[in-house]
């Protein structure tokens, strides 16, 4: 890692680990490629763990299970996956008051493939409607500080929205 330029995704993962987020799960998105490369390179000797999930609701449920065992979970997904796991967010994480950092790519933020248009336009309103605080990822350390303090103090999931490839 020392020689090559680190991706923003790798920096994000390391910043999250620095803030004691130590259990990662999710379903890949091309915008989040750098983060997933870093997660797949986590060694068995490291404090953090990565569970590749087949669907977003599996990742969210796994995050809940990890929290019960004392871990601090992060879930990464494309915004299309928010539709799949909406119920698991509302009837599990929000009702049971489980703090999780959601890293959600924002496909359809600008011109994009047709399948991303509707969810891309609705993503912020969707998160507002179910009561998940969210912020667009810009400055990584500041975003992780915000996510950590907001999730911990409110004991609810919070979302970082990723607009560009990281």
């Amino acid at each position: 890692m020392a020689v090559s330029q680190q991706t923003t995704g790798a920096v994000l993962v390391e910043e999250l680990i620095e803030h004691r987020w130590d259990y990662f799960s999710g379903v890949p998105c091309s915008l989040l490629k750098g983060a997933f490369v870093r997660l797949e390179a986590l060694g068995a000797d490291q404090a953090a763990y990565y569970l590749p999930a087949p669907r977003e609701e599996v990742a969210v449920a796994a995050a809940a299970g990890a929290y019960l065992a004392g871990r601090n979970p992060v879930v990464l997904m494309q915004n299309s996956g928010l539709g799949y796991c909406l119920n698991t967010l509302t009837s599990l994480l929000l009702i049971y008051r489980i703090p999780v950092v959601l890293v959600i790519s924002w496909r359809g933020h600008g011109p994009d493939a047709v399948e991303h248009v509707i969810i891309g336009e609705a993503i912020e309103r969707l998160l507002d409607a179910i009561g998940v605080p969210h912020q667009v990822l810009d400055d990584v350390p500041a975003a992780v500080r915000w996510a950590t303090s907001t999730a911990s103090s409110s004991r609810r999931p919070v979302a970082l929205l990723v607009q560009e490839t990281i």
Binding site: Y23, S25, L51, A53, E57, V58, A59, V60, A61, A62, A63, A64, G65, A66, L68, A69, N87, T88, T90, S91, L92, I95, Y96
Partner: peptide
């Protein structure tokens, strides 16, 4: 309470 289908992934992570 809800989240039908979530017991297995939750238990797996646990």
């Amino acid at each position: 309470a809800g989240s039908m289908g979530a017991a297995l992934p939750l238990g797996l992570a646990l």
